[in-house]
Nucleic acid binder design. Structure first.
Length: 564
RNA sequence: GACCCCAUCGUCUAGCCAGGUCCAGGACAUCAGGUUUUCAUCCUGAAGACACGGGUUCAAAUCCCGUUGGGGUCGCCA
């Protein structure tokens, strides 16, 4: 199945993202499989940054992608040097630089070689001219191919234009033969010569195109196995033509199926804009509801389906609209409180499985078992609901201590207000009391804002469940609250046990032993609603003073609640 | 449109390559019960698929062909 590849060479795989923002979850899957394959064969995994698009690349973007990979636990043996959270470093290696923009000299050397050998040639058509040709081809229902006009240029004309420094691209002269890809997933795929034209290998700006850079770098970096998305399958014959022209060894290829949204659309950063836009329109918003976005930007964004806001603008807007944005980038999942090991487990199940009924496993298992032969050809859809269920399972399987540690890490990164509000012991209890009820590390924070809201700013819900807790029954919730308040006030030690003791004693004596009769009114008093961690813990975390203040405040408002 | 790839429950998939043990197994979601001081869990059960049509064969989810459907590529993006 492998082609022109000596099996005795150590396995080298690479992940080669373009640095455009954060790492997409689909890219993470590719990276994970590349990583696992290298590990499986005790080989090398290379990270290379494909920043040959001057318009779109930035250093911070590359940094973001490396952070995302490191967070997932996907470390690279060669590539940009990076200090990991645990203090160790990864990357380095002697086949760099690992940023393509720093390899221009290398590309030019090989480019010159191809030109000298007559295997590549300059072409002077402008992008506009080519676009016109393309359009007329479509209008005439022909397939567009470059017409090789540059090859018919008289030598003196060519010399003169080159001497003048006239802008041009370099194209590869494609051989007039079918090219066959031996793909570990797809099998044998043959493309006829008339399907391939003389594609551009160096752009007008002097940068190599992706096709050229990828082939040169893979060869020079000793890449033996190219694992990538199926979108590249049609490019592979071009790459093979280039490899042959340059006299390199052909790597083994494995093109894996793609992953889509549940509705079959592409998972795109734009999905987040789309969700926010839909919600904003539904809310009838005309002006920007948040300071992060000015009104002009907002209204333009609202009208233009393709417009995108900055990530922090989008997040602010989502908070204001009370919606959750669909997660697309690894960073989105991190913010949403997913565990990196769960994300890795889940995405590795998209298009791959270890066989049988096994579906929960760790990175070590993956690195032991991953191989191309269990990669399936069918594209998959990303089911966030199943990911959430996986995350829940992992969280529930965790010890309390571990859960607390993870929540603390999460808050240190995203919710400084919770860190600042609690002392260590309270934070510990806060996290612990949320363990059993959390599906994500974000849940404790999202469901417990009332802890960090000032006592006199709690907003009481007015729905039926709240009225039921407060006004219904005889005695009703307010009556219970009035009776319990002094008991709580008299408590000498404010601990979960002491609080629960008082409450169950009271319930036994005055509420048919039903803790719910008193727990629910108390919940409303201290949280504003009917949902919180166990009542004893909720009160304990909040503190005696705040609890009593909140109860009295609600009692003072009792006339404003009507029976439900 | 041309070319390339693909096709098992709503979704992720096992089974397919080496045809019979599959009136197709697991997971998520759904539905119905049950446990629980709220929410969330948890337990039990139910429903749910081999896209269609030919062929090969004693036998096809598994092999072949076609149809239909889906995806990808056709950039001086990667």
């Amino acid at each position: 199945m492998t082609h022109n590849t000596s099996d005795d060479r150590p396995v080298v795989t690479r992940f080669a993202p373009s640095p455009t923002g954060h790492l997409h979850v689909g890219g993470a899957r590719t990276a994970l499989f590349c990583w696992a394959y290298a590990k499986r064969h005790s080989g090398q995994f290379i990270l290379r940054i494909e920043d040959t698009d001057q318009a779109r690349s930035s250093q911070e973007s590359a940094r973001g992608i490396m952070d995302d990979l490191a967070w997932l636990g996907i470390t690279w043996d060669q590539g940009p040097t990076c200090i990991l959270p645990d203090g160790s470093t990864c990357g380095g290696g002697d086949r760099g630089p690992y940023f393509q923009a720093q390899r221009l000299d290398i590309y030019n050397t090989y480019l010159q070689q191809l030109i000298a050998q007559g295997k590549a040639y300059p072409a002077f058509e402008t992008p506009q001219e080519l676009e016109t040709q393309r359009k007329s081809a479509i209008a005439a229902k022909r397939n567009y191919r470059y017409d090789r006009a540059a090859l018919d240029l008289p030598q003196h004309q060519l010399d003169q234009w080159l001497a003048e420094g006239r802008e041009h691209v370099i194209r590869l002269k494609m051989p007039d033969e079918a090219i066959t890809v031996h793909d570990a997933v797809r099998g044998v795929v043959t493309v006829q010569p008339e399907e391939m034209d003389d594609f551009i290998i160096r752009k007008r700006d002097g940068f190599p195109t992706y096709h050229f850079a990828v082939v040169v770098d893979d060869a020079l970096m000793g890449v033996t196995h190219v694992l990538r998305g199926e979108e590249h399958l049609n490019n592979t014959p071009k790459h093979i033509a280039l490899i042959r022209a340059l006299g390199f060894d052909e790597p083994a290829y494995a093109h894996m199926s793609l992953t889509f949204n549940p509705d079959g659309s592409k998972m795109s950063k734009r999905d987040k804009d789309k969700a926010a836009r839909t919600a904003a329109k539904a809310a009838g918003l005309a002006a920007s509801p948040v300071a992060e976005i000015d009104d002009a930007t907002f209204s333009a964004w609202l009208k233009d389906k393709k417009a995108q806001l900055e990530p922090d603008q989008l997040r602010a807007l989502a908070v204001s609209l009370g919606i959750a944005l669909p997660e697309v980038d690894v960073d989105d999942f991190r913010r949403a409180g997913y565990l990196p090991e769960v994300l890795c487990n889940f995405i590795s199940l998209l298009g791959w499985s270890p066989g049988g009924n096994v579906e929960k496993f760790d990175m070590g298992f993956l690195a032991d078992r991953f191989d191309f032969d269990r990669l399936i050809k069918t594209p998959s859809r990303f089911d966030r609901g199943k990911l959430l269920a996986f995350n829940l399972d992992a969280l529930q399987a965790m010890s309390d201590d571990e859960f607390v540690r993870r929540v603390r890490e999460h808050c240190e990164r995203y919710h400084g207000d919770f860190i600042a509000h609690f002392d260590d012991a309270s934070f510990d209890l806060f996290a612990r009391s949320n363990h059993a009820r959390s599906k994500t590390l974000e849940d404790p924070v999202a469901s417990c804002r009332f802890f960090v809201v000032p006592d006199d700013e709690i907003e009481y819900e007015r729905g039926k469940p709240v009225r039921k807790a407060l006004v219904n029954g005889e005695p009703n919730g307010f009556a219970h609250l009035e009776a319990i308040a002094p008991l709580l006030e008299a408590l000498p030690r404010w601990t979960v046990d002491a609080i629960e003791g008082v409450l169950s004693e009271y319930a036994d004596a005055h509420a048919d032993g039903k803790l719910g009769k008193t727990a629910q009114p108390l919940r409303v008093a201290v949280t504003g609603g009917v949902v919180s961690p166990a009542i004893g813990e909720t009160l304990a975390i909040l503190g005696q003073v705040s609890v009593l203040r909140r109860i009295r405040r609600l009692l003072a408002l009792r006339e404003t609640f009507t029976a439900g």
